[in-house]
């Protein structure tokens, strides 16, 4: 994970994604540079004119929320709202976890990594593997959505969990965009207002 996973676009000018690795990130749009502060709750923002200020992470997150409601991603193209190189893993089943003979629970059995491209369309989520195989989910069929460490996980009514990890994009960005889009879609379909995305999507 990196600072760019949290600040998936510039909180000031909205350009995305931020460049950089680890605890530093920079914006190619407004030349601001971001750096993990002495306290993690504060992030140093280096302005183009040399000024430096420590801004609470929460306030930067609020700015991102405001940007999200004002405008979508700036990389629209090829019919997708967002498209990223991704590695997918499909759950192939579940295995019981036992300890001293007692059943503790279950854990997903994940299949091999498959590299490809994940695209978010108006009504679909589409993963195209490098060999051309296409997996597509109707957004209204998604049953749950969450981020786990550095991945985004979705499950659909057809069952099975799929995890996506991104080399050049933030899982947080994907999760938030999917949430905004799902809320909008559910509203349009008169399915109500989504208030929970896991353990399953629920609306009232």
């Amino acid at each position: 994970m990196a600072l760019g996973d949290f600040l998936y676009r510039c909180p000031f000018c909205g350009a995305e994604p931020l460049e950089g690795k680890g605890d530093k990130a920079s914006c190619s749009g407004c030349a601001r540079q971001y750096e993990r502060g002495e306290e993690g709750t504060r992030i140093f923002v280096h302005e183009g004119d040399g000024r430096k200020s420590g801004i609470p992470a929460r306030r930067l997150a609020e700015r991102l929320d405001e940007l999200e409601s004002a405008s979508g991603p700036s990389r629209e193209g090829r019919g997708y709202l967002l498209e990223s190189a991704a590695v997918a893993r499909f759950a192939t089943g579940e295995e019981p976890v036992r300890f001293r003979g007692a059943l503790l629970g279950y854990v997903e059995k994940m299949g091999p990594e498959r590299a490809g491209t994940l695209g978010l369309g108006a009504r679909t989520l589409k993963f195209r593997e490098r060999d051309g195989t296409v997996h597509q989910w109707d957004l209204l069929d998604l049953r749950a959505l969450q981020t786990a460490s550095s991945t985004v996980q979705v499950s659909s009514v057809e069952g099975g969990v799929v995890t996506f990890s991104f080399a050049g994009d933030s899982p947080r960005w994907w999760e938030r965009l999917l949430k905004v889009h799902l809320r909008k879609l559910w509203r349009e379909e008169d399915r109500g207002e989504i208030f929970e995305f896991q353990p399953r999507i629920r609306a009232r």
């Binding site: 976890v97 629970g105 279950y106 749950a144 996980q153 353990p199 399953r200």
Partner: peptide, 24 residues
């Protein structure tokens, strides 16, 4: 998977309502 149960941890599946974890 070997160590966590010995440290009193038990799994919960977060993408579904996990009745087994509630039972535990």
């Amino acid at each position: 998977r070997w160590l966590l149960p010995r440290l009193h941890a038990f799994p919960v599946r977060r993408y579904r309502t996990d009745a087994q974890s509630v039972r535990v």
